[in-house]
């Protein structure tokens, strides 16, 4: 089934508590080379057929207005997987 994948990340300058907690755990495991972890969201929009240009534009609109909040998050990528 074709999918439109929307990737959302917390803004770079905001504290990401989940990422920080995971980074701390990795450091406890000895992975000193991992400096930082940030966690975002992958949202799959399943479509009936291969998405058209119009559907992708619609997905971009949905991603900007509802799936993310521009005050705290960025939509980093929208792409299609078949």
């Amino acid at each position: 089934m074709p999918k439109i994948i929307v990737e959302v990340m917390p803004k770079a300058d905001l504290l990401d508590p989940q990422g920080k907690a995971v980074a701390n755990a990795l450091h406890r495991q000895g992975h000193a080379n991992i400096l930082n972890v940030r966690i975002g969201k992958r949202i799959e929009l399943h479509t009936a057929g291969v998405p058209t240009e119009a559907e992708l534009a619609e997905a971009q609109k949905i991603a900007d207005s509802f799936l993310s909040n521009g005050v705290i998050e960025d939509v980093v990528k929208i792409h299609v997987e078949n």
Partner: peptide
Amino acid sequence: LVESHLLPGGLIRNEAQ
């Protein structure tokens, strides 16, 4: 209210987590 844009800005997880 902030998500419906009646008030500006946003609310994030508490600093101390």
